[in-house]
Design a protein around this nucleic acid. Sequence first.
DNA 1: ACCCAAAGTTTACACTTGTAAACTCAAACG
DNA 2: CGTTTGAGTTTACAAGTGTAAACTTTGGGT
Lengths: 124, 124
Amino acid sequence: MKKEKTISESEWVVMEYLWENPLATITEIRKALSANGWSDSTIKTLVRRLVSKKAVAINDEEPVFRYKPLLSKNECRLKETKSFLNRVYNGSVSMLVTNLASESNLNEKETAELLSLIEKMGKD
Amino acid sequence: MKKEKTISESEWVVMEYLWENPLATITEIRKALSANGWSDSTIKTLVRRLVSKKAVAINDEEPVFRYKPLLSKNECRLKETKSFLNRVYNGSVSMLVTNLASESNLNEKETAELLSLIEKMGKD
DNA sequence: ACCCAAAGTTTACACTTGTAAACTCAAACG
DNA sequence: CGTTTGAGTTTACAAGTGTAAACTTTGGGT
């Protein structure tokens, strides 16, 4: 069993940026993320940790290093979604959606339609 | 700013049990959860932490202590769901559902219907 | 040729989480 | 009554996270 390193909340923010800007330099990353109130050091640490988790790779052809995500946004999302679903909703998509629906303002009929569609998704 | 103590993954398992069995005694909790491979001590620690996080209350009227959840499953779920949505899907329900739909086997038309329903939910 | 700022590396430190042993105290058993 | 046992409390300890300072090296400017 490998370790299955997870991406932490703060690290996600960095990943989001890298997904939008693959091959960014640190300067770029710093510029963009310092708005979050993070210091230089913090950002460097986050990037370094992502590299050591093999979520980001370093391109060191040129004088400057460029950082590139190794995992796609989609695969990360799916993984997170799955673990979230299991933890909070026993893996049941329909329960999740029911909850979302009840939080917003769908009426009875709409909710029913929604659920029947979800059912078609097969394994909830 | 209050601390916003969060319930960890392991603690969540304990909460699940308490939601099903409010006012359970430790012995009961232990019996039920030792199946997860946790030692006695571990379970006691988890319960204690939940108490200190004010997620669980102690009823000490009788000789034995009984533990009771202070937060409902629904409110915990909603809170988790919201933070998950923000973290992973920028708070967009429709993006989440799109992703779930694409993972299963909805066809074009079904997916479209699903999305239009989700749109009716207002704020994505 | 020399200094500085920025890139990259090392070290730090408190808090949370997973996991659990050790200790204390009272009730139950024999 | 003394001993075992389980409930509750204290202490432990490594890994992960948030957050960042300090140190080192090096290309660019003067």
